[in-house]
Design a protein around this nucleic acid. Structure first.
Length: 204
DNA sequence: ACCCAGGTGGCCC
DNA sequence: GGGCCACATGGG
């Protein structure tokens, strides 16, 4: 199993790479509380692995992950992703041991995995350095950069990554901080009163 | 009775 | 390349 050396490894509460990948898809536009219920159901059904999901039936999987919302879509996507990982790459482990750029390319070809989910999987499951940009990060960064209009995902990622040079170790911590702070202070608006994020943002 | 959550893909222009 | 929309449950 891949190891993570630095803090916040418990921030993504997966105990296995399978759980992290499955959780990454389930949590799309969904609160983690609901995802936890779905993950608990999977565990109880002995289906919390890419291998099991590649063999489970659509209806059964729908029933199991229902609390996570978008359950028909997510069941279909998880089954396809799992079947492809096993069928084309042999195993999840083999898949995650490829080069970072190859993993990202392969992930983006799956239906149901976009930039953010791909990068979360690369950072937390494959344990390779990449900066994950989610809604919270975008919101906070937009403060620092004076609310730059419509900056694309990969452009924003590149900008941040360049500014992180020499401090790669903070990738996981930084993302976690963004999510925590974003939840607390910047829920809906790019700007808010008395926001204590300025200091944090300056440290980019 | 709203609004939101650790997105993605399809369709339209 | 941007602006909507569907997808669905559970919590505030």
């Amino acid at each position: 199993m891949l190891r993570r050396r630095f803090g916040f490894q418990h921030w993504w509460p997966g105990e296995s790479t399978d759980e992290i990948v499955i959780g990454a898809v389930l949590t799309q536009q969904t609160s983690w509380k609901n995802v936890e219920k779905a993950l608990a159901n999977l565990k109880r059904e002995n289906a919390l692995s890419i291998n099991s999901i590649s063999r489970i039936g659509q209806r059964k999987l729908e029933r199991i992950i229902k609390p996570a919302g978008f359950y028909r879509q997510k069941a279909r996507r998880l089954r396809n992703i799992s079947a492809s990982m096993i069928g084309q790459y042999g195993s999840l482990d083999a898949f995650l041991h490829m080069k970072k750029t190859d993993i990202r390319k392969a992930l983006l070809e799956f239906d149901g995995i976009g930039n953010e989910t791909a990068d979360a999987i690369i950072l937390y499951a494959a344990d390779k350095r990449i900066f994950v940009i989610d809604a919270y990060t975008k919101r906070i960064i937009s403060r620092v950069y004076g609310f730059e209009k419509d900056i694309g995902y990969e452009e924003l990622q590149k900008t941040i990554s360049e500014n992180l040079k020499g401090r790669e170790w903070i990738y996981k911590d930084f993302h976690a901080q963004f999510v925590r702070l974003g939840k607390e202070f910047c829920r809906t608006k790019p700007f808010c009163e008395n926001c204590p994020l300025d200091e944090v943002c300056k440290s980019i």
